[in-house]
Structures are given as structure tokens and as C-alpha cells.
Design a protein around this nucleic acid. Structure first.
Lengths: 247, 247
DNA sequence: CGAAATTTTGATCACGTTCAACTTCAGTGG
DNA sequence: CCACTGAAGTTGAACGTGATCAAAATTTCG
């Protein structure tokens, strides 16, 4: 994992990490691998004790209900961690499936925790990442609970664009969208035909265009208004001893 | 905060905390206070840099949309932390309002982070708590996105019961429910009349009874089936050096 | 005790689901 | 090279659920 690795980019947005820090993280990596599309990385109900740092590709975290319906909890993008939250429970609560081919580095959760004891900034980074995850889920709750279908779709697209931009995977107002409308429907709590209609409407209104699984925003301000989109603004982790003398 | 404090109970479910550990946590507390019902503790859009450990009372984390609708993200119970996630951003993304009178202990987030550098088990505990928060939000997404109204209400009640039990605030199959139907409607993405109907149905079907804001489960197995409820099973944090010699 | 908040009930109707048919496209093997 | 297959996208029609609005009943609280 070089300085260019999207997960390292995210770490550096949170705090200072020295080369030694990153080296000790690198030492934990037991496995570097690619996963084919449609493959499940994590399966609901099974034990999972790893953290996988996604270098490239898209995935989705989801839950299958008894009635056959599926709810996509969140999308997994480069720089995200598979196994967060799965590895913090006896059994994973959600499955994670690769949407495109996925490249990732894996380490055991216990090794990572051990690193956290030795270098607390990793534990704090883990907290911050988990909090980001929680807030992202929170936005998703607002989406599904109280936004209209058109707003949901717009919000979904804007969130993807923002998250991809943070790890350098968006080209200006354009980004790759390899998700099927079925997956988006399962993410947004809508039916496939309705997602289709809403996407068509966004196109007809001149807000977006979609070419070859690539989305381009044409009027990001109107989109932001429509979606009620609020750009996330994480604080950096306060450095050690920052408040030592105030106590 | 004695050993009996619901937040300390949650800490101890996660890891070993010595008296010295807990004392150093206690030393951070700047304020012990009560908040009256209907008062906002955190306000969406404003900076918030504290952690408040709830000793007693109920609150709700919510977001107000431009169209006047409200989405309740999650309920806040004894043992929960106000300021998680709000204090991890420049500006809080959600508001938190007291539903009943609330008793809590507050410390500054920077002081807590400083403690995390000195005693990494607090940083790890923070991670675990944030992950629990995320998974709870995830369940809420499934609730709103893919469950029927009756299932949502049932799931909501079961989750409350489980969380209260974990901090000793449920009496067997009975627990206090001080939330108005309006709040539940805003949590579950339903209208008030429909929440009312669904509660009436649960009562008519002999699954629950409600007396004086106290819910009692009569057939928890049928409820669990109806709600697709899965009891959360957090793992404890691996102790330090657990994996040292394997690397 | 009076005012306000909350719960309950009912009627109507719009929205989004469901189901079905059809199109387009990519991949595969004859 | 083209027929075949399956997945994904698109469109339309009918239905049913849950929202909306309104109003009464009940409870809570100042």
C-alpha cells in the first residue's frame, strides 16, 4: 500500500501518519487479492475476522430478508474497509458482494487491534472511519425515510460523486457508475421501474447524462438543491497532547 | 460515574477497564447536568465538541428537512453517547432532543481523544461503540427500506427492549416507552395514523400490551418472527498483545 | 381547571408497486 | 458469422397501500 492507496489517502485526511506508521500497517497485510464480480466477500450469518482495504473496484453491503427482498445498506468504494462493521460481531450482519472486479489488501482484525494498542492513532482513525460510516448510514435513513424518489436518486448520485472525489476517482463532474438499476432500487427502497423513471427524469430535466455507465452532472447546484445534499466535513483527529496542559 | 453507570456497563461489556482507567475517565468530566424534556442538546449545523454519557432518560437524534419533515435517525438511551457522531464533524449533522428529562456527564472531545492516546483501550472502545451505532443505523435502513409497516413497528419495539436490557433498564419483558406516536412515525417513515393502526394491531393480535407508557411483550417469539429481529452480538475487544507472538 | 398535546377513528385519493411485455445489449457456442 | 441466451433497461396499465386531511376523544400538564 503506497501513499497513493485510496485507504492511505483517507487516513491522511484524518491525521498525520509517518512512513513508519504506514510500514507497520503494511506489515499486517496477509493477503493481496482480486475478487471477481458477483462474488460475496462477506456472508451474513458467518463469522468474519478480517479487514480488507479496497484499492480498486465497487462493492455493495446488503441484507437479504426472509421474504426475498434485499436492502443495500451502503456502497463500498475504493478506500473503504470491508469487515467494518462485520468483524466486530460474532457473526456478520450483512453480506458484501463485489459489483466490479475488486482489488484489496486484507489483514486479520486481531492484528489490527494489536497495532491499535501500539499506535493509538490507528485506533482513533478506526473510530473516525466508523463514525463516518455511521453518518453515511444516517444520511441513507433520511433518504429512504423522508425524501421523495427523485430526491433519493439525486442524493445517491451526489454521495457517490463526493466519496469518489475524496479518493481521486472522479473526473470533475463525471464518475463511473457500474451499478445496475436493480441494485439502486434495492439501495433506495424503490422498485426497478421507478428508479428507471426517476433517472429518465433527471436526464430529461438536463441535470445529468449517462453514457456507458458514466454519469456526468450538468447542473450540480440544482442537483444539490433537489437532493438536499450536504457535503460531509469530517474534522481531523486532534493530535496527541493537544489538550494536555489544559487539564 | 460509578460501576453502575450504564455507560460503564457498556464499556465493561467490551473490555477490561481497571479502576484507574475509569478514574481517568471520570477526571475528564467537566459537567454533570440534567436536561429538561423537549430541550435540544445538539443542533444541526452548529459546532459541537463534547461527549455526553447518558446516565438516565431518553432522547432522539433527528434531522429536519427543508420541507418541514423530520426523520428520527435513532433513539438515545441510557449508556449512549450524545456527541457521537456530532463531535466528529465541523458542524453537527443531526440534532438531539431530550424526550424525557435527561441526566448526563459531559467531557470535551479533545480531552477524550487525549485519553485515547494515553490509554488506547478507550480509543478501541470508541471504535466499537461507533460500529455499534453504525450497525444500529443499518438495521434502521433495512427497517424503513424493505419492511412492512407492521414489521417496522415490531422491530422498533424489540430493538428498544434489547438495548434497554443491556443496561439493566428493562424488567423482563416490560420496558418504558415514553415516545409519542409522532416520534415513532418520524423514526419509521410512516404517518402518525398508520403507526397508531399498527400498534392497535399488535395489541389486537395479543403480541403486546401498553399500559401507562410501558410496553409488555406477550409473545416474544412471534414478535421476533414478525420483525425479523436478530439480536446483536458484539464481540469483546481482543486484549492487548493477544496476537503479538503470532506476527 | 383549562389549554395543549396526543391518541384514535374515518374517508378519500395519489403515488409507487406490481406485473407484463418488449427492447437492447453482451457474451457464448454452434 | 449469426443464432441463442440471459441480464439489464424501458415502457405501460391496473391495483392497493399508506398518506393526507379532518375531526373527535382522551390524556397530560401548566
Amino acid at each position: 500500500m503506497g501513499r497513493r492507496h485510496p485507504f492511505v489517502l483517507r487516513l491522511n485526511q484524518l491525521s498525520e501518519f509517518s512512513d513508519a506508521d504506514l510500514q507497520s500497517l503494511d506489515d499486517l497485510i496477509e493477503l493481496e487479492t482480486t475478487v471477481k464480480r458477483r462474488c460475496d466477500l462477506v456472508v451474513d450469518g458467518y463469522e468474519y475476522r478480517k479487514l480488507c482495504f479496497v484499492e480498486d473496484g465497487y462493492a455493495a453491503r446488503y441484507k437479504l430478508l426472509r421474504n426475498g427482498k434485499r436492502q443495500v445498506i451502503t456502497t463500498v468504494l475504493p478506500g473503504d474497509v470491508v469487515g467494518l462493521p462485520g468483524s466486530f460481531f460474532q457473526k456478520a450482519h450483512y453480506s458484501v458482494v463485489a459489483i466490479t472486479e475488486l482489488r484489496l489488501q486484507a489483514c486479520s482484525i486481531t492484528d489490527f487491534v494489536d497495532l491499535c494498542y501500539r499506535r493509538p492513532q490507528f485506533a482513533l482513525a478506526l473510530s473516525w472511519l466508523a463514525v463516518q460510516e455511521a453518518v453515511s448510514y444516517g444520511e441513507h435513513i433520511v433518504d429512504i425515510g423522508r425524501r421523495t424518489p427523485i430526491e433519493r436518486v439525486a442524493h445517491f448520485l451526489m454521495e457517490l460523486h463526493t466519496r469518489l472525489s475524496l479518493v481521486g476517482r472522479a473526473r470533475g463532474l463525471t464518475f463511473e457508475l457500474p451499478f445496475s438499476q436493480e441494485l439502486m432500487a434495492d439501495a433506495l427502497g424503490l422498485s426497478v421501474p421507478h428508479v428507471n423513471r426517476m433517472l429518465a427524469r433527471l436526464r430529461a430535466d438536463g441535470l445529468i447524462s449517462v453514457i456507458d455507465h458514466h454519469v456526468r452532472f450538468h447542473d450540480i447546484e440544482r442537483l444539490r438543491l433537489l437532493a438536499h445534499f450536504q457535503t460531509p466535513d469530517v474534522t481531523r483527529i486532534p493530535p496527541a497532547q493537544a489538550s494536555a496542559r489544559t487539564r
